[in-house]
Design a protein around this nucleic acid. Sequence first.
DNA 1: GCGGTTCGATACGGCACTGTATCCGATGCA
DNA 2: TGCATCGGATACAGTGCCGTATCGAACCGC
Lengths: 221, 221
Amino acid sequence: MPADPRTGSTTRVERTVVPAISPRRERTRERLLDAAFDVFARLGVQAASIEAICEAAGFTRGAFYSNFANKEELFLALTERETRVQLARLEEAATGLDPATVRADIREAVRCVVASVMPDPAAKQSWSIMALEFELLALRDAQVAARYATQDRRLREELADSLTRLLAGIGLRFAVDPHTGVDLLLGAFESGQRATLLAGGGEDRASALIEAVVDLLVTPA
Amino acid sequence: MPADPRTGSTTRVERTVVPAISPRRERTRERLLDAAFDVFARLGVQAASIEAICEAAGFTRGAFYSNFANKEELFLALTERETRVQLARLEEAATGLDPATVRADIREAVRCVVASVMPDPAAKQSWSIMALEFELLALRDAQVAARYATQDRRLREELADSLTRLLAGIGLRFAVDPHTGVDLLLGAFESGQRATLLAGGGEDRASALIEAVVDLLVTPA
DNA sequence: GCGGTTCGATACGGCACTGTATCCGATGCA
DNA sequence: TGCATCGGATACAGTGCCGTATCGAACCGC
């Protein structure tokens, strides 16, 4: 069902309606987003100048203004991309666990699923920072808050579903309602991870807290 | 035992050694700190210009540079002052509860003590923001991280002591070690509070989560 | 009251960044 | 291959903020 007129039988192209992003354009956007992630994490969203992001991406500001209206738009595009990645990661982690493994170590299984919403360990610190930056922006700007809420809700619902299914598969369930359970797990995980990062990364506080919560929270169905 | 030479019998004043902050200077500093709290919360530490802080305080930059070397020093002075206030508040909240009240509603009592580390409700949002800003700065700067860790550890230890005593007073205890218990409570409280603020303040998610944690965490001694 | 000192105001030079307008090489299409 | 469009580079004017140097008024002790 080609709703897009560009895919129709006529050769006429409606350029003014849909600009049809070229591959080249797509690549520069990606490079700008990658650079923005690094620079935002290193300097902070507010302190990061558009100039610095462009330089990190190997462009000048001309490229930037050709692709984004301002820094905020770039940031929102970045969070959207990251959320898509997170959801895919979660999906993969949740479906990739077989019941035998889960039964063997339920704490580790839950920890693994919760941790899956984080990107590769190398970027752990950067991602923690970006998450905080996003929250801060949301606390100051109602429009950003709405976007944040949407993405956050989506993630927590997926997580609640995944974990509920995971537990049900081996005859267990949350002692509280799944929504609360996920909030507690994520709260424990995030504060634990931040504690670990701030302490220099010695002991893995996040895992310890997650396991404590699982012990308290998971009960026979 | 007057170790300070200025308090000795001689009238000679050692100005070069200890500048002996005048009342006037003290007032200026306080006004700058108050203004900084507002402006930091509103714009963010990085985006807040020294100029804006001075204007909010009713000074020019001359006053600022006469009192602080740079914005970071001002910020650290601010966090120190706030931590002192928090500790005092906690002390007050913990000692002000009689066993009867605690026994009547243990969940509310714990919530109350945990919440005491927050300033007056009017500044709730501002303080949440400032706490996040502090964390963010700490994640980027090892020196700030050390300071943050010190203040945070102090607060958590006090909280652990207070709550352990509170529970012991009515024959209860944490099901896990107090340190973990406090981490879980604070994690739940903070994430709940942020959720509430971001959702526009409808339901009090922080209280709900705290109560869930108390139910799971508190057990007969 | 008077001198010295303190402390905040004022004035200055300089810099980094922003957003726009314009240019020109790369790209895709017949 | 030639041409039209696209996309990034370059140039420019404007702005806000920084840190310092200097000034002058309020605030002490005597």
